[in-house]
Structures are given as C-alpha cells and as structure tokens.
Design a protein around this nucleic acid. Structure first.
Lengths: 169, 169
DNA sequence: GTCTATAATCGGATAGAC
DNA sequence: GTCTATCCGATTATAGAC
C-alpha cells in the first residue's frame, strides 16, 4: 500500500477541495486516509505540521513540473494547466489555496512562489516582459476561477490564439 | 455612533483580512467591534447569519459600484479597482474571498456574481467579446494576487496601454 | 507504526438580568 | 439593545497499550 504519509496528504487535499478548511479536522482527514487520529499524529506532529506537509508537496511538484515542461510549448502548457484540475500539481495548488489565511503557516508565499515559477518557464517562449506579465495574470485569473469552482470549461481556442498572437509579435 | 450591525461587519472584514477565517470567531469579531458575544448574537443569529451578512454587503456595494462607474472609462476603472484595496467594495470582496469553502453559505456564487457584474460594465467599452474575456481574466488575476497579499503595486501604465490597445482595435 | 482512551481547551449558542 | 453566566459539543493533543 502507498506510504501512509502520502495517503494522508491525498486525503487532506480531498477534504480541503470538497469541504473547505473548516472541515479539515484531524479526525476527518484521518478517517479519509483510513488511519486513526493517533496514526495521523505519528506522521504529522500536529495540525500545523500537517498543513506544512501539503505546502512541501506543493513545492516539490512545482519543481518537478518546471523541469518537465521547459521544452514543450510553455505558453500552451501553462494556460492548459491553469484551467485543468486533473493533474496532481493543480490539485495540490487548489487545495493549498483553501488554506489562505491560516495563521502560523506561510501559505501565501508558497503559492505565490508556485505561480511565479511559471514566469521563468514562460521566459523561454515570450520575450516581451510586458506580454509575459499579461499572460501570467490571465493564468492567475484562471486559477481564481478554478478556486471559485467554475465549471472548468477549457479555454476557448480563440482566446489562446489571441494570446499567442501577442506572445509572438 | 455608527450602526452596531455595520460596526460588526467592519470588524469581521478586519479579522478575516488580517488573520483569516479560523480566527473569525464570534468572540474575536465581537471584541473588535466593541460589543459582547451576546450583543453580536442579537444582531446576527449565529455564525452563518454573520457570514451571510458580509455577502449581503458585498452584493449591495457591487450594485452601487456598477451604477456609479457605468459612464467613466470602465476599463481603467476596473483595472484600477482590482489592484487597490482601499475602497470599501474591494475590502469587502477580499474579506469574502477568505470565506471560500465555508460550508453552509454560497460564497463562491456571491463572489463570482460580483466579479461577473463587471463584464456588463465593460461591455459598454469593449465590443469584442474575446478581448472582454481577456480583460476580465486579467482583473481576476489581479484579485488573486491581492488575495495572496502581494504588495499592491499599481498596474504598470505600459500594461494598461497594451490592454487598451487591444480593447479599441 | 498504529490503535484506544482520555485530558484539556475552545467555540457556538442559550437564558435571563439590566 | 446589550451584558454576564453557563452549558454543550467539537477538536486538538497526550498517554500508554498492542
């Protein structure tokens, strides 16, 4: 069976995305991961440690994503990722966003870093820093909509085309 | 002295923005508003009612904003608003965003409506629906950054210029 | 490494005085 | 309309068995 620690973090993501931070009690998360409260507390010393565990995973996945997609069409990849919640990275990011404002952990910085790391990836494709910032903001907007739970309608091809025409002019 | 109800909602906004939803207990909010827990509960029957009170305020301010800024340069107004947290509307919106994922109240819809109402305002300025969607997403991105607490650097004039050139082409 | 039981705390909500 | 006192349930965390 998969590492218990990972299973617990998966469970945390589920609970956060489905029911929000208030529902993410130790007991609920433990039950979802099929361990007892005590079992969970063996792996994560407390609630803060649990949440920080999620942020660690976010940083990990972010780094992996960056190295992978450096070569592919970065722009298309970025816009696609922002509007899709199926891949592990986006799931973790969305779950982490539910923790914004939790005292004692630096969610905001972890997320901002995670978003900003795309700027480096995009730099290989888009020369104009102004256009790059525009594209970043569009991506951020897509993430906000995803956070609001908007049905994840894939970005119109037309809109992608418009953005690409800017990126390559 | 200002209406107690309003003072309580002001206090709620402060607590939410400064310390997040977990810190927004009845006691903390009441203290900040300089009333007792009992006093707060006289005006809002419970926690859900309190939170819904904030969403009501959001809808109210949104409607007011819409009618006011219909005539001005809507695009510039929108982009400016998104990146500023001083005005009442943006404060309320940012505070409401901290409630995303709270069970029992429909924060997500209230916020999505609030953001979408700008689409109508922008329609008076931007004909192309594609460009309009692009501008909306940029605005959404600015709000996400504001939620993350990014120092609210005013949007570069250059970027506004780029967007305006799209809007009027 | 995982469990059960329990201690200690905190937060929401009620009742009733003023 | 506002306060204090109180109750009750939920939640975090600890202790110790297996």
């Amino acid at each position: 069976m998969r590492e218990t620690k990972d299973r617990i973090l998966d469970a945390l993501e589920c609970v956060l995305i489905e029911s929000g931070p208030a529902a993410a009690t130790l007991e609920t998360v433990a039950a979802r991961a099929q361990v007892s409260k005590g079992g969970l507390l063996y792996h994560f010393g407390g609630k803060e440690a649990l949440f920080n565990g999620l942020l660690d995973r976010l940083r990990e996945l972010g780094a992996k994503d960056a190295s992978t997609q450096n070569d592919r069409g970065a722009l298309a990849a970025y816009l696609a990722t922002s509007s899709r919640a199926e891949d592990a990275y986006t799931r973790t990011l969305l779950a982490s966003m539910r923790l914004i404002g939790t005292p004692g952990i630096d969610v905001e910085n972890a997320i901002a870093d995670s978003l900003d790391h795309w700027a480096d990836v995009l730099a290989t494709t888009i020369d104009d820093p102004l256009v790059r910032r525009l594209v970043m903001l569009v991506g951020d907007g897509l993430y906000l909509r995803a956070l609001l739970g908007a049905q994840r309608r894939p970005l119109d091809d037309d809109l992608v085309g418009l953005i690409e025409s800017l990126a390559t002019r």
